[in-house]
């Protein structure tokens, strides 16, 4: 798996994201490409305005910054995930996604917006688990965080 950084322009707005080149989309995303799976809106393109704030005159929406994965600690035969939430945005919720070797990412936990860690008592097999998070603000999602991986048995 390689990390891919992508840049797109939608109606004058710049959206930058990242994902793996397998395109392991999260649940709820409609596309299968890297860019779609890591969209800042979680698959639903965000409205974007021009310099004048779009045809409605409303300010252009701010892109939601992504959390940053910090550490993945072995704890009690399972894994404990820690990340850093974006300083510049108050998340309404945090989605923590997990995948085991050979599987696709799926949402494992939906957490309060200020939570920055989770003990994953289900990650107990002798396999490598990979995690990523994203921040939800209103209906918008941040890009996914970086990924972090570990085997709880090793």
């Amino acid at each position: 798996m390689r990390n891919v950084v992508w840049v797109v322009m939608v109606s004058g707005a710049v959206i930058v994201g990242c994902g793996d080149d397998k395109g392991g989309g999260s649940s709820g995303t409609s596309g299968t490409t890297s860019s779609t799976s890591a969209s800042s809106s979680g698959g639903d393109p965000q409205p974007a305005g021009d310099d004048a704030g779009g045809s409605s005159g409303a300010p252009a929406p701010q892109a939601v910054p992504a959390p940053t994965m910090d550490r993945l600690v072995k704890m009690g035969g399972a894994l404990h995930v820690m990340w850093v939430n974006p300083a510049s945005a108050a998340c309404d919720a945090i989605e923590l996604e997990r995948k085991a070797d050979g599987e696709a990412f799926a949402v494992a936990y939906t957490l309060g917006g200020s939570i920055d860690n989770k003990h994953d008592g289900q990650a107990t097999k002798d396999t490598t688990y990979t995690y990523r998070t994203r921040c939800k603000v209103g209906a918008a999602y941040s890009p996914y965080s970086n990924e972090i991986a570990r085997n709880p048995m090793k």
């Binding site: 950084v5 930058v16 994201g17 992504a66 940053t68 890009p143 970086n146």
Partner: peptide, 12 residues
């Protein structure tokens, strides 16, 4: 944005 995402996209 690219800088921020490059930071966020770092592997473990």
């Amino acid at each position: 944005s690219l800088g921020a995402v490059l930071l966020a996209c770092g592997a473990s």
